[in-house]
Design a protein around this nucleic acid. Structure first.
Length: 577
DNA sequence: GTCGTGAACGACATATACTATGTAGTATA
């Protein structure tokens, strides 16, 4: 099979890693070039195997050499340069790079001077205490390496955590740190603040009158398994759940610079620092200053630093080094979504897996200023599903509640239909037609092949009762990859049938994903943000959906619940042709 | 490795903290 985007990305990643071993220098131009090519390819949405050598070179960051390697991979399924490097640096050696604290230079010396070619070799020289004999190594570095090897063998390399795990953990740690006397501000930064789907480590910024008590509070926290590093300004720990947490304590007036630095991304930071240099300024995690005099230009807020660099504030979710600085400069940053006026995927205690009463959910929606709310229990096709009699009873309750509410909040009696393996839906057409709002989603048969999955979704869309497809990919971040789909075919069907697609705000799902949204925003497909709340307190999750939409650059015009209330209500009332 | 300038070559490399060693490696965004 011809290589696709995934294979090309894997090739570039491996080239970068092997070249790192080859040159023993992380700053090598080649390593950086492969990494930037990986970045460039990742941003492509076109079918790469169809691109010629020339067309590939049109992509910024792809030159002659990389373009040739990509074509070579597509045409022959192998790359000569890669094979050569693989021969020189066997997989057993590459694997050693995953040991924390072991970089390309030390690894190079272990190979050259002690003949280490695998984890087994490394374990042997550690046992024989031969490492401490090397220049620049001592007992401590030997012990540190021994510990790192043990950790790697125990449970593999530190994995990235799904955001659904990392966010609550970060909130919990922040709560502990905020309780420390002298702390004026504590928040998370890093990929968590950029709202990435998975989080490598949790970065926390604290401003406080003194750093030491804050560091001590973290080290003594019950979540801590071990301390990796501890200095005056920075402390790193690993939690018992194997998540690394980095804490920085800075002065109040440094908060903006610290946040900017620790929020990243790395590529975004480098671009900002280069931009600073071009203006005779230098940017570090403490301040933006004049290069020659050292005079501080801005440091207190991120906005002030961006402004001093001639840029508007760039929201954290956009700081991925994906052209956002250029867009900001040209005034083309995507607009944030306006206040959302409704939620169209909410469960009450009637669903077996939800907790709040109808009244509690409605109260929460009112408090949020919503103009529309769809109550959408699971239909009978799922485990937590609800039968006809109960739904009819709920319809009556909703009618009477609506009478109390007047026009302030329009209640919709909805349901979340289950899409069966063949696209079949719950109940019967007449019963489904009674609902104000039906969404349909996949909850099982994830293993069907791509064509069958696409077909079942399209069939569901063609049913006149279905207004929206819920969590299209049916994935669970970190555990279930979801179903394979022909996204273009699904989008075409959504356009044709006027079916909206959900942006589900549950942190386990975040579905449509950012990648899918980037494709969907090119089409005339209506999108609806939802919380998929199973408790009244979870209505706020709709903001996570909004972050995902913003990250993908979705325009407000495409989002039904970002429209003015009359237009949104018209859309809901409209019967499909 | 890429890219821009000018047709082969030079420029490109942000800024800092921590650790274990006595200058450098590794790590972080």
């Amino acid at each position: 099979m011809a290589a696709g985007k995934r294979e090309i990305l894997e090739m570039l990643r491996e080239l970068a890693q092997l070249t790192l071993l080859e040159e023993e220098n992380p700053q090598s131009f080649r390593v950086r070039a492969y990494e930037s090519a990986e970045h460039a390819i990742n941003a492509q949405t076109a079918e790469l195997s169809a691109l010629s050598l020339k067309e590939l070179q049109q992509i910024e960051g792809i030159g002659k050499s990389t373009a040739e390697k990509i074509r070579e991979l597509i045409e022959t399924d192998r790359v000569q340069r890669l094979d050569e490097l693989r021969a020189k640096h066997p997989q057993s050696v590459v694997a050693l790079l995953r040991i924390q604290g072991l970089g390309p230079k030390m690894l190079g010396r272990l190979r050259a001077e002690l003949g280490v070619q695998s984890l087994a070799d490394l374990r042997r020289v550690l046992a024989e205490q031969r490492l401490r004999g090397l220049k620049g190594f001592g007992e401590k570095s030997e012990e540190k390496l021994r510990l790192a090897v043990a950790k790697l063998e125990e449970q593999g390399v530190l994995d990235r955590s799904p955001i659904a795990d990392a966010l609550p953990l970060a909130e919990r740690i922040l709560e502990e740190l905020r309780a420390v006397p002298g702390v004026s501000h504590a928040q998370y930064a890093g990929s968590l603040r950029r709202f990435s789907e998975t989080i490598g480590d949790i970065d926390i910024i604290v401003t406080a009158s003194a750093a030491e008590p804050v560091m001590q509070a973290l080290i003594r926290s019950s979540v801590v398994d071990r301390v990796l590093a501890q200095g005056e300004g920075k402390t790193s720990i690993v939690t018992r759940g194997e998540v690394q947490v980095d804490l920085r304590v800075v002065a109040d007036h440094q908060l903006g610079a610290a946040l900017l630095y620790f929020t990243g991304s790395k590529g975004h930071n480098i671009k900002l620092r280069q931009r600073a240099l071009a203006r005779g300024l230098t940017l570090n995690e403490y301040a933006l200053s004049e290069l020659d005099s050292g005079k501080v230009v801005a440091s207190e807020t991120e906005a002030a630093i961006y402004a001093a660099l001639g840029l508007p504030f760039i929201p954290p979710v956009l700081r991925e080094d994906g052209g956002e600085i250029e867009a900001a400069e040209a005034g083309r940053l995507p607009l944030p979504l306006p206040a959302l006026l409704g939620d169209f995927h909410v469960h009450t205690e009637l669903s077996g897996d939800a907790r709040s009463s109808l009244r509690e959910v409605v109260q929460s929606a009112r408090a949020r200023g919503y103009r529309a709310l769809a109550i959408t229990e699971h239909a009978e096709g799922t485990r937590a599903g609800v039968g006809r009699a109960q739904l009819l009873e709920q319809a009556a309750q909703i009618r009477s509640l609506q009478a109390e509410l007047g026009t302030e909040l329009r209640l919709l009696h909805g349901v979340e239909l289950n899409i069966g393996p063949e696209g079949e839906l719950d109940y019967d057409p007449e019963f489904r037609a009674q609902f104000d709002f039906c969404l349909a989603s996949v909850h099982s048969h994830f293993e069907l092949e791509r064509a069958a999955q696409t077909q079942r979704i399209v069939r569901a869309m063609e049913d006149p009762s279905v207004r929206m497809i819920g969590h299209l990919a049916a994935r669970h971040i970190g555990s279930g990859p979801g179903i394979e789909l022909d996204l273009e075919a699904v989008l075409a069907a959504a356009e044709r049938t006027g079916t909206a697609l959900e942006i589900n705000g549950s942190l386990e799902r975040l579905d449509l994903s950012v990648d899918m949204l980037r494709v969907a925003r090119q089409r005339r497909v209506a999108l609806i943000l939802t919380s998929d709340a199973h408790h009244e307190a979870e209505l706020g999750r709709i903001q996570f959906a909004a972050l995902n939409a913003q990250r993908a650059g979705v325009a407000p015009e495409q989002v039904v619940n970002a429209w003015p209330a009359p237009r949104m209500l018209d859309w809901l009332a409209a019967k499909r042709a």
